[in-house]
Simulated assay, not measured.
Amino acid sequence: KALVADKGYDSWRLVDLIARTGGCANIPTRRHVKNKRVVPPELYRERNRIERFFCRLKQFRRAATRFDKLARNYMATLNLASLRIWLRHVESTP
């Protein structure tokens, strides 16, 4: 229903395509564009959290370079890496 992206995906063609399919584009406009779109800050913060998670996930070499040939093995690798990231987060919170 809602697509949240960064300024790199700011194009009216993409926004129109999302609107035609029944979604809502939450993409901030680049600074040189005259017609600015309003993006809820809470929604954009969530996008940032997800992007930071994927950056952490790429630190696991096996997941980033996709050594596994089978999809089920690759998903298992992603699950283990995600679990490790989550456990680090849980341990660091008081």
Rank of each mutant, 00 (worst) to 15 (best):
K69M: 07
K69W: 08
A76C: 14
R72D: 00
K69C: 05
A2P: 13
A19V: 11
R37S: 12
A63S: 02
Y44P: 08
R49M: 06
L43F: 11
V4T: 05
R13H: 14
S92W: 01
C55P: 10
A63W: 00
T65I: 13
S11K: 13
L57N: 00
C24S: 13
I50S: 03
R88Q: 14
R66S: 00
P41I: 04
E51T: 05
I50Q: 01
R13N: 11
E46S: 11
A71T: 01
K58A: 05
D16T: 12
A81I: 07
V33W: 04
R20C: 15
Y44A: 14
K36M: 05
R30L: 08
N26H: 11
S92R: 08
S92C: 08
D6L: 11
I27S: 04
R49H: 06
E91L: 06
R45I: 09
A25Q: 00
H32T: 11
V90W: 06
R84M: 06
P94M: 12
V4H: 01
K34M: 13
I27V: 08
L17M: 13
R84E: 00
L3V: 12
R31Q: 14
A63E: 01
C24F: 09
V90R: 13
P28G: 11
L78D: 00
D16L: 11
L70C: 04
A63K: 03
R61H: 13
F67T: 11
M75P: 00
K58F: 07
Q59S: 10
A81C: 14
H89T: 15
N26D: 10
G22E: 01
A5I: 09
W86Y: 10
D10C: 09
F60P: 05
L14T: 05
A71C: 02
L87H: 01
P94L: 15
G23C: 11
L3G: 07
R72E: 00
R13F: 12
D16H: 10
W12F: 13
P40W: 03
I27T: 01
T77K: 04
E46A: 15
E51V: 09
Q59R: 09
N35I: 10
P41Y: 06
G23H: 11
T29F: 05
P28D: 03
P94R: 15
I18C: 09
F54M: 04
R84T: 04
E46N: 09
E91H: 05
N26P: 07
I50L: 01
G23S: 14
Y44D: 05
I85R: 00
Y44V: 13
L78P: 00
L43I: 12
V38C: 05
R20W: 13
K58W: 03
L14Y: 02
H89G: 15
D16W: 08
R20H: 14
Y44K: 14
N73P: 07
W86N: 11
A71L: 02
E46Q: 10
